[in-house]
């Protein structure tokens, strides 16, 4: 069962990614990519990593892709510019519906399988407790380093954003 689900989800992930990298319109690419991330998250769940699966959805689909969407919207890469060049409308969005339906079906199947996790799902299963223990005991230093990296990223993003906001771009002076 789980093996079959893995192959279905793998196919969905590959198809969605392929659609994503070939889209002309960045917003469509983002939607396909979110589909692909869902499929990947379910694969992570199948591989016994529920924490990573949840974080994949929260961070990748929920934050990073939203950030992409935000930037695309802010730069006004308008949707109407190449509407004519795409194929007929139903064909254009049929893939995303199919992929989404496949993912939704797999999710529902997984949710109903879950109470019987012991028999159906993988023998190897990382509970959030084990996961947190490993993360904060064996990799405490790495966590600190990554948190500093995030801090620097925040400062850097703030700096770049501020420089863009001023009249004279700072990049031009140096």
């Amino acid at each position: 069962m789980a093996t079959l689900l893995f192959y279905i989800l793998g196919a969905v992930a590959v198809a969605a990614t392929a659609m994503a990298v070939t889209r002309r319109n960045p917003v469509h690419a983002v939607i396909y990519l979110v589909n692909s991330f869902f499929a990947l998250a379910l694969i992570f769940y199948l591989l016994g990593a529920p924490m990573v699966a949840a974080l994949e959805v929260i961070i990748y689909a929920g934050a990073i892709m939203v950030l992409f969407l935000f930037i695309i919207m802010m730069l006004e890469l308008s949707p109407g510019e190449d509407a004519d060049r795409q194929g007929p409308v139903p064909l254009q969005w049929l893939p995303v519906l199919l992929l989404g339906a496949a993912i939704l079906g797999c999710t529902l199947l997984l949710l109903q399988l879950d109470p019987a996790a012991g028999q159906q799902l993988p023998r190897w299963y990382a509970s959030p407790r084990d996961f947190g223990y490993t993360l904060f005991h064996e990799y405490a230093l790495a966590v600190e380093i990554v948190s500093f990296q995030l801090l620097f990223a925040a400062v850097g993003a703030f700096y770049v954003g501020r420089a863009a906001g001023t009249k004279e771009p700072l990049g031009g002076e140096r």
Binding site: L55, I59, A63, F68, I71, F131, T134, A153, G156, V160
Partner: peptide, 23 residues
């Protein structure tokens, strides 16, 4: 799995900087 968490942190940092650069 722990490495994946670090990877995600790295990605979010990378994305925030690179998108700021894009803008």
């Amino acid at each position: 799995q722990v490495m994946v968490i670090f990877l995600m942190a790295l990605t979010s940092a990378e994305v925030s900087i690179s998108l700021a650069m894009v803008v």
